[in-house]
């Protein structure tokens, strides 16, 4: 099984395991600091393929720059900054998102995001599943750098 297929399979598997609407995997470009969405499951369109966020911008850029998880509840209420700074939430019409970093050689290089189109947060157990999946993905993304 090649890496690409394994990663796509992992995204699909998270989608079914925790009954979420969207799962996406973003990675920092090999060259330069920009971040792109590479894989998605449950996506309602292909916008994610064209979206590039800058390091430190958008959910993916912020997770990579801080190396910490980010939760967005009831988007776009109570967000930091403007709704337009959250392109993946707009593109997929998400109201809730939980995004965790994926590390490569000790540095945050990727993001695993799960989202819902309703404002129903995932519970602690489900967050744990996402964190575990991010750990598993750490080994899989090595070939992409």
């Amino acid at each position: 099984m090649n890496q690409s297929f394994e990663i796509a399979h992992m995204c699909e598997s998270i989608l079914s395991k925790i009954a979420t609407d969207f799962v996406g995997l973003a990675l920092q470009n090999r060259e330069g600091p920009d971040v792109r969405w590479h894989y998605a499951a449950g996506n309602s369109n292909d916008k994610y393929k064209k979206i590039t966020v800058r390091y430190g911008k958008g959910i993916a850029g912020k997770v990579i720059s801080t190396g910490s998880p980010i939760t967005v509840n009831n988007f776009p209420d109570n967000i930091y900054g403007k709704a337009l700074e959250y392109p993946i939430m707009l593109a997929e019409k998400l109201l809730y998102a939980y995004a965790v970093p994926i590390f490569y050689k000790g540095a945050p290089k990727g993001v695993l995001l799960v989202g819902r189109r309703t404002n129903k947060p995932i519970n602690e157990g489900e967050q744990n599943i996402v964190r575990q999946a991010a750990l598993s993905l750490e080994g899989m993304i090595s070939g992409l750098f």
Partner: peptide, 8 residues
């Protein structure tokens, strides 16, 4: 705009 929002 396209690279930010994915809209052509």
């Amino acid at each position: 705009y396209t690279s930010t929002y994915g809209i052509e």
